[in-house]
């Protein structure tokens, strides 16, 4: 398996696809951060301890912030690293040659998955490190240990999330014989999750709890709660919630309605959560993403193992 891993890794690293995505992702991230840093002074309130994390979370109109960029790029990178993993081997005629070598069949798919994951991790860590380094250079405020921990957790969550997309893309690459098909299906699914899941959630919530001008705060809260719950079918939203909570310690609840109520009604102050509590907060999200990735990978694994190599 190591040979396959090595070969796939080398293939990815030398591919134009990797180079283009990496450069694009880095440029987008650097750009987002350079613009964000200009706004950082305004965003840093006197009560804020987490200055360094602000580099990643501040948006500078009209460009969205770093997190937005990374949450777009990770699925694209994941899909790009996986959509043709198996079917390209098949169409190029390499698969049967490969399978006639003395290797276990699962090591092909394992090696490919791990290589894609490694490349993805490489990219995620590099981008975060470059952005962090740049931010450090510009704002001159070093991260404290908790911020470093949060960034590490952020990187890990991102890698897991990317792993989900890789697994999904590999699943499609096993299922569809043509690389173009599997890419389109993966991208379509991503767009569905990314754009439409929230819209559907909103529609469902509005159908269940219609809101109008006279609606009480509770009604609003219930509506938002339903929206949240439904939109969690989308891994994009799960990931979004997780990273926002990780990088914004001030977020004490993933439920904006609860936050709203606690601030407006209870007059609760927004005190930052400590790392452990933030982790606890996003734990369900992370576990869900891991589970989704595992399911996708397991299905593609089984399909690949069971797939008959037919005569022509």
């Amino acid at each position: 398996m190591y040979a396959i891993f090595r070969k796939e890794l080398a293939d990815h690293l030398e591919s134009k696809r990797f180079a283009i995505l990496f450069i694009l992702a880095t440029l987008a991230a650097v750009f987002a951060v350079l613009l964000a840093v200009q706004n950082i002074r305004g965003a840093v309130t006197s009560s804020s301890e987490f200055v360094f994390l602000k580099i990643f979370t501040i948006s500078s109109e009209p460009l969205p912030f770093f997190l937005f960029f990374i949450s777009i790029f990770i699925p694209i990178i994941g899909i790009a690293l996986g959509f043709d993993a198996v079917n390209s081997e098949r169409t190029s005629g390499n698969l049967s040659r490969l399978l006639s070598q003395p290797i276990y069949r699962d090591s092909i798919i394992n090696g490919k998955f791990l290589a894609s994951l490694a490349v993805l991790s490489f990219m995620v860590v590099s981008v975060i490190a470059i952005v962090g380094g740049l931010g450090l250079r510009i704002i001159g405020v070093p991260p404290n240990s908790e911020e470093v921990l949060r960034l590490v957790a952020f990187a890990l969550t991102s890698i897991i999330y990317g792993g989900f997309w890789v697994a999904l893309a590999i699943l499609f690459s096993v299922s569809f014989d043509r690389a173009a098909t599997s890419m389109l299906v993966s991208l379509a699914l991503w767009i569905f999750f990314f754009l439409f899941a929230s819209m559907i959630a909103e529609a469902i919530a509005n159908a269940r709890v219609p809101l109008d001008q006279n609606s009480s705060l509770e009604m609003f809260a219930r509506n938002i709660e339903i929206q949240r719950m439904v939109s969690r079918i989308s891994p994009c939203n799960l990931y979004g919630e997780a990273i926002v909570a990780l990088l914004t310690p001030e977020i004490a609840s993933l439920n904006p309605a609860l936050m709203m109520i606690s601030v407006t009604v209870a007059g609760k102050m927004l005190t930052p959560l400590n790392f452990g509590q933030s982790l606890l907060l996003i734990w369900p999200q992370v576990v869900s993403i891991v589970a989704l990735a595992a399911i996708c990978f397991a299905i593609s694994y089984i399909r690949f193992i069971k797939q008959e190599i037919r005569a022509i």
Binding site: D11, E14, S92, G93, N94, S96, R97, S100, I312
Partner: peptide
């Protein structure tokens, strides 16, 4: 055992 499939393919790159 060596097997040369009918439509043998190599990594073109």
């Amino acid at each position: 055992v060596g097997y040369l499939p009918e439509k043998v393919g190599f990594y073109e790159d």
